[in-house]
Design a binder for these strands. Structure first.
Lengths: 239, 239
DNA sequence: ATAGAAACAGACCATCAGTCTGTAAGCGGG
DNA sequence: CCCGCTTACAGACTGATGGTCTGTTTCTAT
C-alpha cells in the first residue's frame, strides 16, 4: 500500500552503509548457494528483509549489486597484497617472493572459502562474475607485480622480455591454476591427500620454474611455498 | 492464427540444415551489429523470416543459438589449423612455426573481419560469447600445440618446464593479444600506420621471444612473421 | 515544532525467453 | 491418385524477472 492507506507500516530505517552491507550479505549468501543468474532481486529482497523500493534505493540495478559483491571480494586481495608488500623491503626478488608468499598465506588461511569460490565459479551461469573477479583482482595485482619486475630490471637482476607482458603471463598463470585446484580439492575430498598434495605441488613447482624463465632468473629463484604447508592446508579442509 | 482459421498461410518449408543456416546468418548479423545480449529471439525471427514456433523447432534455446554461432566461428580456426598442420612435416620447431604462420596468414587474409570481431567483443555485454569463442578455439588449438611441444621434447630440441602448461601459456599469450589489437586497429584507423605497425610488431616480437624462453630455445627460434607483412595487412583495412 | 531530505514500501509495467496448440507442406505406400 | 503420417512451421499465450513510480514514514537540522 504505497498509495493511500492509514495502514500501520512499521518500517526499519537504517544507515545506508549498514543496509547496503546487509543486502550484500544476503546477495553473497544466495550467490554462493545458487550461482549468480539463479539469484533474483526478489530473492535478495526477501533474504535481506527489505522491499523492492528499498533495494533499488541502494542499488541502481542488478549489475550494481554484482559490482558491490566483486568490490567486496577484491578488497581481500587488496589487503593481502598491501600487507605482503608493506613488510618486506628487500630487492626485487625478495619482494616478488614476498608477494607470492602473501598470496600463499592467504590461501592457506582461507582454504575452505577458496574451495567454495572455486566450486561456485566452476558451475555454469557464473562466467560473468568469475571474469569480473579475475579482472578486478588482476587490476589490483598487476601494477604491483609490474612495478616489482621493473624494479628488478633497474636493479639488473631481472631480465624479462617485457615487463608488462611478463606480469600478464604470471597473472594468467595463477588464474589458470583454477582447474588444477578443482582437481586438488576433489582429490582431497576423496581422502587421497597424497595425490592431492602431489598435484598442487607439481603445478606450483612448474609455475615457479616458468617464472624463473620469464624473468631470466636461475632455476629455483621464484619459490612457491612448500609441500608440508600444502599438506597441512589441504588436511584442514572441512569434511 | 494457429487455432482455427481458414486463413491462407503460404508458409515456406525448407530443409532443416538450410533453415538453420539462414537463422544463424540472421543471428550472426544481428550479433555483429548490436552485441549478444541486445539480440532478442524476436529480432532473429524477424530477420530470418520465420515464426516463433519455427525458430524453436530448430533451436532449443537462445543458448543453443549461441552454441551454433560459436561452432560456426570455430570452424574457421579448425580449418586453418588443419591446413597449417597438413602441409609441413618437419621437426617440431618447423611445425610450430608453420602453425603460427598459418594463424598469421589467416589474420592477414581476414583483417577486416577480425577487426569487426575484436570491436564487437570488446563492447560490454559480450563477455559470454567472447569467452565461449576463446574456450572453443583453445580447445581446438591446445591439443595440436601440446602435441608439437611433446614432439619437440621427444626430439630433444624443446625443453619446456611442462608441455601442457607451456601450451596454455602460449594460448593465453595469443588471447591477451586482443587488447593490443584494439590499439593497433585504432592507430591504423587514425591513419598512423607507422605507430600501428610498430605496436603490433613489438608485441609479436615479444611473444616470440617469450615462446623461445618457455620452450628452452635460442632467441629467434619462434618467428611471428614480419613487419612488411603487417604493414601490408594493416594498410588493407577498409576506411 | 516543523519542513525538508532521505530511507523505504509495494503496486505496477515492460520485456523477453520459452511453451502450446493447431496447421500446412512434403513423402511414402496402397 | 489419394490418404495418412511425419515434420517443418505459425502465432497466441504465459510466467518470470528486472526495473519504475508514487506515496509514506522516519530522521535531522534549524
Amino acid at each position: 500500500m504505497a498509495k493511500t492507506g492509514t495502514k500501520r507500516d512499521s518500517r526499519v530505517r537504517m544507515a545506508p552503509a549498514v543496509r547496503r552491507d546487509l543486502i550484500l550479505d544476503a546477495a553473497q549468501a544466495l550467490f554462493m548457494e545458487r550461482g549468480w543468474d539463479a539469484v533474483t532481486i526478489a530473492d535478495v529482497q526477501e533474504a535481506a528483509g527489505i522491499s523492492r523500493g528499498g533495494f533499488y534505493h541502494h542499488f541502481a540495478a542488478k549489475e550494481d549489486l554484482l559490482s558491490g559483491l566483486i568490490a567486496r571480494m577484491t578488497e581481500q586481495a587488496m589487503q593481502t597484497t598491501e600487507a605482503a608488500m608493506s613488510q618486506n623491503n628487500g630487492d626485487a626478488l625478495v619482494q616478488l617472493n614476498g608477494l607470492l608468499d602473501g598470496a600463499a598465506q592467504w590461501t592457506a588461511d582461507n582454504v575452505n572459502e577458496l574451495r567454495g569460490l572455486v566450486q561456485i565459479f566452476s558451475r555454469p551461469g557464473n562466467e560473468i562474475p568469475y571474469r569480473r573477479i579475475c579482472d578486478a583482482d588482476a587490476a589490483v595485482v598487476m601494477p604491483v607485480l609490474k612495478a616489482i619486475i621493473e624494479a628488478g630490471i633497474a636493479e639488473g637482476t631481472f631480465n624479462p622480455v617485457d615487463a608488462g607482458l611478463t606480469a600478464e603471463l604470471m597473472l594468467s598463470l595463477s588464474q589458470g591454476r583454477r582447474e588444477v585446484l578443482i582437481e586438488v580439492f576433489d582429490l582431497a575430498s576423496a581422502n587421497d591427500l597424497d595425490a592431492s598434495v602431489d598435484a598442487l605441488d607439481r603445478r606450483l613447482r612448474s609455475e615457479g620454474e616458468i617464472c624463473d624463465r620469464l624473468l631470466g632468473l636461475p632455476v629455483g629463484s621464484v619459490a612457491l611455498s612448500n609441500r608440508t604447508e600444502y599438506r597441512r592446508m589441504l588436511a584442514g579442509l572441512v569434511q
